[in-house]
């Protein structure tokens, strides 16, 4: 068992983050609350916390740079990710202490809200990174997914060859089941794991989710089979569609899990860019209106 990004280096960055939080708290509570000013970002302590927060944001966004500096000997990316996680969480506290819960309809609060969204999407990312790889491996059951795709192609070929031996009606149903099987689709379909497969029985195409309609159709024909050869053929097809069902489930789940592990970055990264802009505006406007 290897250490993951949470337990990396015996929680080294957890301790660093806790230290940072403790120091920020101390700084925050050292602000005098008497007189005109409440605790806020304008005191020297407030400015210190703000500077710290801004530096953290810049450093956190540098993970993307480090990840692509393939020659860099500056520690492992895993260490950086671990620190990114803990310091990112600490940022939530640092920034909140900096703003002292003074919100308004302005660019300052916009920066704060964006930061919270970035951190929240990051927390979701952490969750999927910790929880999903195991499910993904279990789903693939020790084989690589390309082998499953090849197996599916193989089964499809065998099914259409078998179907050609049956009567016209049977082969039409079976061929339409193959033809109207949907794997993939829009991002949303993939992430939801929706199956929009259909099958044409007679003249209408009906829902064939999880291949259940075609399997039910085949099963219902078996007892009505007039000849032994037909019954055998139907049984063989039934067996094939059973295997196909398992493979399709595996491929669909694989795509879904992979999708979930990536999709959050499509929020996390753009939000980070937006945050960086808002942060620049926030800092500049503070200095201009000082």
């Amino acid at each position: 068992m290897l250490p993951n990004i949470v337990s990396y280096a015996r929680f080294r960055y957890l301790w660093l983050a806790l230290l940072l939080i403790a120091a920020s708290m101390a700084l925050y509570f050292s602000q005098a609350t008497d007189g005109a000013q409440p605790r806020n970002g304008g005191t020297w302590q407030g400015y210190t916390l703000g500077t710290l927060g801004a530096l953290l944001i810049v450093w956190l966004s540098l993970l993307g740079v480090r990840k692509r500096s393939y020659r860099s000997a500056m520690g492992r990316v895993q260490g950086w990710t671990s620190a990114h996680v803990y310091l990112g969480l600490a940022l939530l506290v640092v920034a909140t202490l900096h703003c002292a819960l003074q919100f308004g309809l302005n660019v300052h609060t916009l920066a704060y809200v964006l930061m919270c969204l970035v951190v929240l999407s990051g927390i979701y990312g952490l969750y999927v990174y910790l929880a999903l790889p195991g499910s993904l491996a279990a789903n693939n059951a020790g084989r690589d997914i390309a082998a499953s795709s090849r197996e599916l192609e193989d089964i499809d070929r065998q099914i259409s060859r078998l179907a050609a031996r049956g009567d016209a009606d049977l082969s039409a149903v079976v061929d339409s089941a193959l033809e109207l099987t949907r794997l993939g689709g829009t991002t949303w379909t993939v992430l939801r794991g929706r199956d929009r497969s259909r099958v044409r029985v007679g003249s209408t195409a009906v829902d064939n989710r999880d291949q259940s309609a075609v399997i039910a159709h085949l099963a219902s024909r078996v007892p009505r089979a007039s000849r032994r050869r037909e019954a055998e053929l139907l049984n063989e097809l039934l067996d094939m569609f059973g295997r196909r069902q398992v493979l399709l489930r595996r491929l669909r789940r694989d795509a879904r899990l992979r999708g979930l592990m990536q999709i959050w970055l499509f929020f996390h990264i753009p939000l980070t860019v937006a945050l960086l802009f808002a942060l620049v505006v926030h800092v500049l406007s503070v200095f201009i209106y000082w």
Binding site: N4, I5, A73, Q78, W80, P133
Partner: peptide
């Protein structure tokens, strides 16, 4: 030739590669 050692291992963000 890389001073830091195996690039594959160092580049893994989650520490899965050893």
């Amino acid at each position: 030739d890389l001073p830091g050692g195996h690039a594959c291992v160092r580049a893994c963000p989650t520490g899965a590669a050893i």
